[in-house]
Design a protein around this nucleic acid. Sequence first.
DNA 1: GTCTATAATAGGATAGAC
DNA 2: GTCTATCCTATTATAGAC
Lengths: 216, 216
Amino acid sequence: MPAPSSVAAAEQTSRDKILDAAEGLFAKRGYAAIGLRELAEVVGLGKSSLFHHFRTKAQLYAAVTARILVRIEARLVRSLAAGGDPLVRLERWLDDLVDLLAENPTYARVLLRSLFEDDDLPGDLPEEIEGRRAIGDMMAAVGGLLREGMGAGLFRAVHVNHFLLTLVGVTVFPFASGEFGAEVLGKDLFDPTEVRRRKREVRALLRSGLVARASR
Amino acid sequence: MPAPSSVAAAEQTSRDKILDAAEGLFAKRGYAAIGLRELAEVVGLGKSSLFHHFRTKAQLYAAVTARILVRIEARLVRSLAAGGDPLVRLERWLDDLVDLLAENPTYARVLLRSLFEDDDLPGDLPEEIEGRRAIGDMMAAVGGLLREGMGAGLFRAVHVNHFLLTLVGVTVFPFASGEFGAEVLGKDLFDPTEVRRRKREVRALLRSGLVARASR
DNA sequence: GTCTATAATAGGATAGAC
DNA sequence: GTCTATCCTATTATAGAC
C-alpha cells in the first residue's frame, strides 16, 4: 500500500503516467488524431498495456477530461469559500481560474476539445458522468453567485445562463485558442505579463464594459 | 460556361457539393475523425473522385475553412461600411456576426475546430494563406474600430488585442459550444429567441459590464 | 502488469481504364 | 470527371505467454 493519496508521494503509477501523457497529446492534436501506439511510445509501455489500465480509448479520454474538471472544481470551491460579497467572490474565482488555466496549458485545450468531441464517446461511462456532474455543479455555483449579486443590487439584471457562456468565453476560450490567440495578441498568452493583463481586462469588462462613463 | 458566379444558378458543381458535405461533417466530428470514404458516400461519389477536386484531405479542409472566413469577412465589410460612430458600427457588426453564426450552425464549429486542428495542416497551402489573410484583415478592421472609439473618448482604455479575444469569446465560442452550451442555456442557442437574447447580452456587456451603476 | 502476436478494419493516396 | 483496383500503413482491440 504505497502512499495512496499523499501529495508528497514521489512514486507515480503507470495509470498516472498514461493520463499525463494522454492529456498532453489530446490537448495538442485531439482525440481522433492520437493513436494508442503513439501514446504508448510516449509513456514507455507497449500498446497492449494501455488496455490493462483503461478498457477503451474513449474511457481513457473521458478519464483525462474528468480529472481536469474535478481539479478545476476543487479550485472553484476554494475560491468561493474565502468569502466576500458576490463581486469579490466572482472576481477572485475568475482570477484563480485564469491562473489555473495559465499554469496548465493543456486544460483549456482539452476542455474545449471535449465540448466538440463528445460525439466520439458512448455517453454513459462513469468518467463522463463524473465530468458532467462537475460541470453542472460549477455552473450552478457561479449561477447562484450571479443571482445573489443581482438580488443584492450589486449586479445589473443579466440573463444568468447567457452570462455563464460569456464567462467561459472570456476565460477558457483564449487559453485554448493556440496560434490564433498568439497571433492576435502578438505575444504568448501564457506569458505572466499577458496572464496579468487578461485578468485585468476581465475585471474591467465586468466593472465597466467597453463604453466610457461620460458618454453613457 | 454555365452561370459562373450567378447567385441564381441552380447548378451546383461537384466541388461545391464536396465542400458543403465536408463542412457539415468536419463541423460535427472534426478533421481527423472524418474519413474520405465517409465523405464520398455522403456526396455520392467514389472516394477516388475526391482527389480529382482536392489534392489532399488537408487541402480540402483548408478550403472549407477559408470559404467560411471569406464569407464572414464579406459580411464584416458590409456591416462596417454602413456608417455611424464606432459604437454603432461595432454593435452592428456584432449583431450581424451573431446572426451569421446562428444562420449557419457549421461556421462557429469549423472555425473553432480549425484553431485547434492547424497542426494537421502543412501551413503553406493557398487556402490556408487566404484564411489567415481574412482573419488578419478582420482583426485589423475591428482593432481599428476600437482604437477609433478610444480616440474619440467613446470607449474606455482597453487593451485592444485582449479585447479582440474577448469579442471572439463572447460571439463565436457560444455557437460552437454544442451540447455544453445547450445544457447551460437549457435551450437551443440557435433558436431565434436565444439568438436575440445573445445579441442583447453582448450589447449590454459592452455598455455596462456586469456591475450595477449605483454601486460603482 | 507487461509483453508478442494477431485479428479485422479503415486510413490517405495513386494508377489507369473508361 | 468518375470509376475499380490496389498499395502501404495505421487503427482499436483481443488472446495468451511470461
